[in-house]
Design a protein around this nucleic acid. Structure first.
Length: 434
DNA sequence: TCTGGGGTCCTAGGACCC
DNA sequence: TCTGGGGTCCTAGGACCC
């Protein structure tokens, strides 16, 4: 047994209060808002191509549906238990997410939007007994105003608030709010948290730690810090300190610019012709260009990649990617598509069935307006892109697209169980009503 | 038959320089 | 002929997250 010197409890700083608000089974809850009959019923939401299960309502969880399981493998249990199945509808979820985040700002000026369904809030200045009341109030209001159930965990560091949130979710006694601020509560909470549930400790690290009999978060903080540093690097050390109440991860209130932007998809069915790959790569790269334009960024370089279906052992496999330096930093769809297609031609090999392709825009930076004499062309491209974005936002995406995207699109993803985008797409609503 | 997508951070190792 | 070692930068790949 390796071991172990415990840090003195008194350096556990209980002063700060960080709350983690996490929407319960977010995608499933979004589907329920517009179909109240689904309340209390088991639901799952599928990934692109209706491939894997990426959200389960609590009812579906208790029926034994696993996270990330391929849909076709779970089909039997799903049919047997009449579980409702939905294709993912990101425009709906994105819109609901925005409403939740806008609401959270009313409760604290310091909000870090961490993901589509999670946010950290700074709740400093509250006495411990007030925290519970205030958090319950937030839970109630989000449910009432938006229709989304949330859980809240509070701790003095981000990692502890994650632990608290997990406990709030798993144990109904908490009624959605768990505060871990007293050292005794923290210790209890850590003892009840399996090591693999600690934020930052994934499959590999938890296997490694369990092999040393470090089975829960309390075992972890009672382990020698030097050993953790040696075996888990700075990442492990940060987790260790955070669990001791020493903050290493500050609230990120000013979101920094993205460093890269990736658009990639698996195809509905595999394709082997260059022309089909060209269509999909055109589509993905113009979407990526559009995404960075929305954020006022330009890319300096990009990657294109293609791969065959590695699950299919009987077919020969091939994958490759290529890095392309763009002639100048740009977010112009035409430029980016042109380079992507050049790259694709170089890595394409005949005779394979391709399952997925993608592009990554790299070295993103703010598009600065430094114009010289040679920039006339860039001005023109900028105004074309502006018009294109305007038309597409007004009349729906892909109203205007680049010719090499094609129209037939054999590779298009499968979404057979899609609900309408109630909040964002007017055309869909009309279609439903008719 | 059917197995997601978009990110971040860290590290090891290679290339290169002096 | 003998054939060093430290620093920096870059990249690919691993691990993790939601």
């Amino acid at each position: 047994m390796l071991y172990t010197k415990q840090l003195p409890n008194n350096h556990y700083s209980l002063k700060k209060s960080i709350a983690l608000i996490d929407c319960n089974s977010f995608y499933a809850s979004c589907e329920r808002i517009f179909n109240p009959k689904l309340m209390g019923k088991p639901i799952v939401v599928l990934s692109n191509n209706d491939g894997c299960i990426i959200t389960r309502s609590s009812e579906a969880k208790s029926l034994g549906i696993k996270m990330g399981e391929p849909y076709f493998k779970a089909k039997k249990i799903i049919e047997k238990n009449k579980i409702k199945v939905f294709s993912s509808n990101y425009s709906l979820y994105g819109d609901i997410s925005q409403r939740v985040m806008e609401t959270l700002v009313k409760f604290s000026p310091e909000v870090e939007i961490y993901s589509i369904d999670e946010a950290f809030l700074s709740l400093n200045g509250f006495e411990n007994y007030e925290l519970n009341t205030y958090c319950s109030h937030i839970v109630e209001k989000i449910k009432k105003w938006i229709g989304i159930p949330v859980s809240i965990g509070v701790g003095s560091t981000k990692t502890l608030s994650k632990i608290a949130n997990n406990l709030a979710k798993k144990n109904e006694d908490y009624q959605g709010v768990c505060i871990l601020k007293e050292w005794l509560d923290v210790k209890n909470g850590l003892a009840r948290t399996p090591i693999g549930d600690v934020w930052g400790i994934g499959r590999r690290l938890s296997m490694f730690l369990r092999s040393y009999k470090i089975n829960n978060a309390l075992d972890f903080i009672n382990t020698d810090k030097g050993w953790i540093r040696k075996n888990m690097g700075v990442v492990g050390e940060k987790i260790y300190l955070e669990l001791h109440g020493i903050s290493c991860l500050e609230l990120d209130l000013m979101p920094t610019n993205k460093k890269n932007c990736c658009v990639s998809r698996s195809f509905g069915k595999s394709v082997n012709k260059l022309i089909d790959l060209e269509e999909s790569v055109t589509n993905y790269s113009s979407r990526a260009a559009q995404k960075i334009r929305e954020e006022g960024l330009v890319a300096h370089s990009m990657n294109v990649f293609i791969l065959t279906n590695y699950f299919n052992r009987r077919e020969k496999q091939y994958s490759n990617s290529i890095k392309l330096q763009l002639p100048y930093p740009t977010n112009d769809s035409l430029q980016i598509v042109k380079n992507a297609l050049l790259g694709l031609k170089k890595i394409y090999r005949k005779g394979y069935n391709y399952k997925k392709a993608g592009v990554i825009l790299n070295e993103l930076s703010k598009s600065s307006i430094t114009k010289g004499l040679l920039d006339y062309k860039r001005d023109v491209s900028e105004s074309i892109m502006k018009s294109m974005d305007l038309i597409n936002s007004r009349y729906g995406n892909s109203t205007l697209k680049i010719a090499s995207e094609g129209v037939e699109n054999k590779w298009k993803i499968k979404r057979e169980k899609l609900t309408p985008s109630y909040t964002t797409n007017f055309k869909d609503i009309i279609r439903v009503k008719c």
